[in-house]
Amino acid sequence: MHSPFFKGMSHGIPIALGYFSVSFGFGIKAVMSGLSVTAASLISLTNLTSAGQAAGVDVIAAGGTIFEMILVQLTINLRYSLMSLSLSQKLDKKFTMPHRLLASYGITDEIFAVCSSQTGLLTPAYMYGMIFIATVGWVLGTFLGASAGQILPQSVSSAMGIVLYGMFLAIIIPPAKKEKSVLFVISLAAALSMVFYYFIQNISAGFAMIISAVIAAAAGALLFPVRENIGGQA
C-alpha cells in the first residue's frame, strides 16, 4: 500500500462503488433511450461523467444537432474547468505535460473532491490509481445496467431510471440547505426548466436546460457574488 498508485486506488474504492450503482442506472436509461449496450459502455469509458452523459443521451435520443450536443456538454461540464484549474495549482513536479494530458481525462466531481482534500502535492501515480478504479466501477456498472436492463423485470428497470436524478438531488440539496444563494439558484433553475417543459415546447430539451441554468447561475452571481472558496462544491 506504499506505492502511490495503490494509495490512489484505495482512496478511490468508495468512489468506484458509488459510480457502479449510479452508472447501472445510466446504462438502463441509455438502453431505454434506444442505444446499444456497446454505445452506452463506450460513452461511459470516453466521458466519465454523469450529468453530461445523461444529457448527451437525451440529445442522441431526440436526434439533436451536433451544435446542440457541443453546447450541452460545454454548459454541463464547464464546472470541470474550474476543478482542473484548482487542481493544476496542486501538482507535483512529476506532473509533466504528458501526465497532465493523460490525467485530465479523469477529473470528476468526486475525484476532484478527494484529490483536493489531500495534504501535499498530487503525483501522477496517485491520480492514475484513483482514476483507474473509478473508471472500472463506472464502465462496469454501465455495461451491466445496459445488459441487465433487458433481462431485469420491467418494474425493477423502470424504478432504476430514477437513480441518477436521486444522486443529483443529493448533490444540490445539502448546499441549498446551508446557503440561501444556492437555494435561490436551484429554485430558479427548476422553475425555468418547468416553464420550458410545460409551456415553451418548441425549444429542445438540451437548450431549455442550458438557458434555464445560465439564467439562474447568472442571477445568482449578480445577487449573491461569491468572494472566496471556489471549488469546494458539487
Binding site: 454541463i76 466531481d109 444540490i172 439558484v185 433553475a189 427548476a190 434555464s212 447561475a217
Partner: peptide
C-alpha cells in the same frame, strides 16, 4: 453556481 443550476434544471 452553474453546477447546481444545471443539475436542478
Amino acid at each position: 453556481y452553474i453546477p447546481y443550476a444545471v443539475l436542478s434544471a
